[in-house]
Design a protein around this nucleic acid. Structure first.
Length: 432
RNA sequence: UCCGGCUUAGCUCAGUCGGUAGAGCAGGCGGCUGUUAACCGCCGGGUCGCUGGUUCGAGUCCAGCAGCCGGAGCCA
């Protein structure tokens, strides 16, 4: 008799199998007990009929507490009421370990703060399970995409010696007596990597110490950052749309069931295929002025509100390119056609999910990059290694960064990024 | 940091005009052969966030503080 996983049950109809898992919920109807058992791969209804088991087993089955670990033996059959689903006709139920106290998360509603306090247990519930599985599929698709295009994985360090880009607040740590900061981006290291390997990417956690309390922010989030030698902005945008389409397509392909649990309307996701609409920053400002933001003017950055207005004009992700240099980090290359503009691009997700990709072409001229560092009042010595990338055979190159949690929130249709990462780190949450 | 809201049973919430605390779920007992957050009956369960004030009397009104949620700024 084989031990099978819930997600494999369809291949074992008519067989007697063993399941090991935890009691998710229990209902009863006199001579029938319905035990919902989950094993990590899914949830299955196990039917205990009084006539099929010993009186002791029947009574005991009705007293198994929620989330006790159990072993169930039974035969697999079609669900009595729901077509396409399967259930287990129980022959034996054994409690492996009963809960020692009442499980805190009941089948009724709970508040977010309470659930986050119990995040280690909340992950067991149906929706959270679905979200983490979608996240996994997205991350796997990210790696498969770059691996399939012969990118080399070049991991960037987490500890960095300087508060580099000078834009956001970083977490400071004590590094054997010297200050060190948790990375906010692996990009500068990827530029060095591109000169060594051609096409590279890094994928890891990044940190921002900003006191942001919004549905789009985490203190610790995961970012994938490709960087490609001899690529211009045009190629970068092409790479971004191919990449995002591939990732979303994979989630749709491999995580249908999970998206159904999340009640995600996938029609908007089906449309994520290249090419994406592209507009310039100037066109975006114009669009804002004509759609409820008459105060918008060149030089403004977009808030969440503005991003929603722009993205809602399109039925798929939209690329906004060529922002004013003043709004962007020092390392962007200037547009040869208008040196007030940066050769950068942001990808805004539809349905109000905002910026999920930011990137562009990097400055490859040594003198201009030195000037930009001075202009931003950044400490030159910290950037000598970065300038070396230009001193020793400079080359045009471009790349971008994609925020995993915002992408997962968008694909899953969640209102907040906090549920897209197993253990979120936020302004007021460091535990569990 | 700023603006707004919330805080009552283990959990989710109701609580009228200021008059002495309620429901559902969870837990226990019983009932029902097809339940889907099952349902029905019975039982136990309270520092009304904290501190102070007004009042004969405060869960309720006022002030301060704390925690949480949402938004802004900043960003992915």
């Amino acid at each position: 008799m084989s031990v099978v996983r819930v997600e494999e049950l369809a291949r074992h109809v008519g067989e007697t199998v063993t399941l090991r898992g935890w009691l998710y919920n229990r209902r009863s109807s006199g001579k029938l007990h319905f035990l919902e058992v989950r094993d990590g791969s899914g949830i299955v209804q196990c039917v205990v009929f009084k006539g099929n088991v010993t009186p002791e087993t029947f009574t005991a089955a009705n007293h198994i507490t929620q989330e006790s670990s159990v072993e169930v033996v039974g035969s697999v059959k079609e669900h009595g009421k729901i077509k396409g689903q399967h259930e287990l006709d129980v022959k034996e139920v054994r409690v492996l370990a009963a809960t020692t106290q009442e499980y805190p998360i009941g089948p009724k509603e709970h508040g977010t703060d309470f659930l986050m306090d119990n995040r280690h247990l909340w992950l067991r519930s149906r929706r959270q399970h679905a979200i983490v599985r979608v996240r996994h599929a997205i991350i796997k698709a990210v790696r498969d995409f770059f691996d399939g295009r012969d990118f080399t994985l070049v991991d960037a360090p987490i500890f960095t010696p300087n508060a580099c880009e000078g834009t956001s607040n970083l977490f400071q740590t004590d590094y054997h007596g010297d200050p060190a900061y948790l990375t906010q981006s692996g990009q500068l290291y990827m530029e060095a990597g591109a000169a060594a390997f051609g096409s590279v990417y890094c994928f890891g956690p990044t940190f921002r110490a900003e006191k942001s309390k919004t549905r789009r922010h985490l203190a610790e989030f995961w970012m994938v950052e490709p960087e490609v030698a001899f690529l211009d902005l045009e190629g970068d945008m092409k790479l971004a749309e191919d990449f995002l389409s591939c990732v979303v397509g994979r989630a749709l392909e491999t995580r249908r069931e999970e998206l159904k649990v999340l009640e995600r309307d996938t029609s908007m996701l089906e449309k994520v295929i290249p090419p994406f609409p592209r507009i310039t920053y100037a066109e975006a400002i114009d669009l804002l002025q004509k759609n409820g933001h008459p105060e918008a003017k060149v030089g403004d950055d977009f808030g969440g509100d503005e991003e929603t207005v722009i993205s809602s004009r399109f039925d798929r992700p939209v690329i906004v390119h060529r922002y004013p240099m003043g709004l962007k980090a020092f390392y962007f290359k200037r547009d040869p056609g208008d040196d007030r503009l940066a050769l950068n691009m942001d990808v805004l997700a539809p349905e109000g999910y905002g910026e999920i990709i930011g990137g562009g072409q990097r400055e490859d001229d040594l003198g201009k990059l030195e000037a930009a560092i001075d202009h931003h009042k950044l400490p030159r010595p910290a950037f000598e290694w970065y300038l070396d990338v230009r001193r020793y055979g400079s080359f045009p190159h471009a790349g971008f960064g994609l925020g995993i949690e915002r992408t997962v929130a968008w694909v899953c249709g969640l209102p907040h990024v906090r549920e897209t990462i197993p253990f979120p780190r936020m302004l007021n949450r460091l535990a569990p």
